[in-house]
């Protein structure tokens, strides 16, 4: 029996699934790179003007070894550090303000009535739209970008925190009260922990938006950072650097999402994990 027949028979009989899971997943990634290479090679649409996977990866490696990204001389690490710092600082500010504010609004109807409608006025504005006004009003370019990234992260965290408080089961509060907890203790031992899963969701959405915003702001406003280098490389038609910038931002985005996920899991360990 030939190999092909054997494979067919096994597959047909349903004894052996089509490749193993790992292999299929690896195949998916390989096919992606192959597709990329083929599109560039055959110059489908304008792919002829873009870099293929092999030169892109080789530029990525040399960038990782410290070669400057463009003529300006800054390395990938410097650009990444600037973007990452902006995201980190904005995230710290956003969590430090949005979480307490969200808890306050969620738990107290008076605060909700006083603050929430005003905040809702600003929520539909995409954070990127604040870029010109932030550059106009804030004294330095850096603080302008930072502000916009902060706005990007702020609203998802706020809204999720409020929703989290709203969905805390009333009976937990009653149970705590009848066990002798005063309102501060109820807040600390019931409302806050019960809201944590929702806060974590908000923070992970927020960090995603922070990255989108930082890249957009850096592209628009220039200076330094991964967003800037992607667009600068485009102007210089260094498409390999464009691709490296995209890879770098993807890696950073993935890493920060994974970090938030980890921390979130640690904080909400009591939740049943499937």
């Amino acid at each position: 029996m030939s190999t092909v027949e054997q494979v067919k028979r096994r597959f047909g009989a349903g004894t052996v699934p089509l490749l193993t899971k790992r292999l299929r997943q690896a195949l998916s990634v390989v096919l992606f790179f192959a597709l990329w290479a083929v599109l560039v090679r055959l110059e489908v649409l304008g792919f002829g003007r873009f870099v293929g996977p092999v030169p892109a990866l080789s530029t990525f490696v040399s960038a990782l070894l410290g070669a400057p990204m463009t003529g300006s001389g800054a390395t990938i690490y410097q650009h990444a550090a600037f973007s990452a710092m902006r995201v980190v600082v904005a995230m710290v500010l956003a969590t430090a303000t949005a979480i307490p504010l969200g808890l306050l609004i969620g738990a107290n109807r008076r605060w909700e009535d006083a603050l929430f409608p005003a905040l809702e006025v600003f929520r539909p504005v995409p954070p990127v739209a604040w870029v010109p006004i932030a550059l106009l009003l804030l004294p330095t370019f850096r603080s302008g970008v930072l502000f916009v990234v902060f706005v990007g992260a702020f609203f998802p965290i706020l809204v999720n925190t409020i929703e989290g408080v709203d969905t805390v089961d009333e009976e937990y509060l009653r149970a705590a009260e009848s066990l002798g907890a005063d309102s501060r203790e109820v807040f600390r031992h019931v409302i806050f922990p019960a809201t944590l899963p929702s806060i974590v969701t908000g923070v992970s959405t927020g960090v995603g938006l922070a990255w989108i915003t930082v890249v957009a702001a850096e592209m628009i406003a220039g200076g330094i950072g991964i967003g800037y280098i992607i667009f600068q490389a485009y102007r210089l038609l260094q498409t390999d650097v464009v691709a490296v910038g995209m890879i770098a931002i993807g890696v950073l985005g993935y890493a920060s999402a994974a970090l938030v996920y980890r921390i979130g899991n640690r904080l909400t360990e009591w939740q049943t994990i499937d």
Binding site: L45, V128, T239, V242
Partner: peptide
């Protein structure tokens, strides 16, 4: 899912706006 999702997952963390130079070059 195994055949498609890993490739999509590689692209997902890239903020859409970072694609702009690529799309300007590639799309007509």
């Amino acid at each position: 899912a195994d055949l498609t999702f890993p490739a999509l997952e590689m692209l997902r963390p890239i903020p859409p706006i970072a694609w702009i130079p690529f799309t300007i070059l590639v799309l007509p």
